[in-house]
Write a protein that binds this DNA or RNA. Structure first.
Lengths: 140, 140
DNA sequence: ATCGTTGCAAATAGTTTGCAACTAA
DNA sequence: TTAGTTGCAAACTATTTGCAACGAT
């Protein structure tokens, strides 16, 4: 369960920019996109560029330190929690929460033989719903 | 099970462009993107513009005549089969096939109470795997 | 010295939009 | 004659890339 502190590649330097990006993604529960991370990191590193943020979000994910989310959005979102889990998106406000659908992995493995002859390696699941706040606000 | 021929809105005209786009999406099993549809439709309507294709893919989906896919791709894909079903993408060649994971809906409903207080309305599932052709081609 | 990394700016890809002309009821 | 639709082109958004300068080993 320990969060990796060290990257996989030997020649992957954890520069101040990368550390700040990693911390920004880890410290929030909001599943941010690149623009959010950019604004957040600029507080401590005002000269960082958006290109560097994009570059390093991808590289950090490649190193296994963060995860790219599979939301149905046209912008990429990122998650500092790298254990396998899924997400639910509020269709009203867009807020994202983590969900663990334990029974799902089994259900999917059980259905694998129906998968048109494909060998099934994994899945991406994203639930849609209404968050507690929007329910309270009278959204149906 | 009948495929709708008529759109939901009264003032939605099934113009030649729209009919051609609809037929193109329905006639193929390849789950095409806008560029593919554009090229296909240009055979019969050489002057159609890409903007019209984009516009009408969205409108046809809004009318319930086609579906937008929830693949993990940065480009939108479309499906003429509008009954609820999911998809599996080959991680080698990108080919998309339909899958029906019957047990899934129940499994997800059963897990709904764990969904961080959200009211669960639906889900998007996309399996990843290796297609028969790539398996035969020696891909692991 | 080397080689990964950065900031900047330009480029790219996919998609959307404004608008005048067109078209069917 | 009106309201929806089209083709065109420009605009837009998210992201990627080329490159010279920088910096840690």
């Amino acid at each position: 369960m320990a969060v990796p502190e060290r990257a996989n590649s030997t020649d992957f330097r954890l520069t101040p920019q990368r550390r700040a990006i990693l911390e920004a993604v880890r410290e929030t529960a909001c599943h941010p996109d690149a623009a959010w991370v950019y604004e957040r990191v600029r507080r401590s590193l005002p000269n960082i560029s958006l290109g560097t943020v994009y570059r390093n979000l991808g590289l950090l994910a490649q190193e296994g330190l963060i995860r790219e989310l599979a939301l149905d959005d046209q912008v990429s979102h990122w998650d500092g929690w790298i254990e396998p889990h899924d997400h639910i998106v509020c269709i009203h406000c867009g807020k994202v929460a983590n969900v663990e659908v334990a029974a799902l992995s089994d259900a999917i493995d059980g259905e694998a033989e129906h998968a048109a002859g494909y060998r099934v390696l994994g899945y991406r699941l994203c639930l849609q719903g209404i968050c507690p706040e929007c329910q309270a606000g009278g959204k149906s």
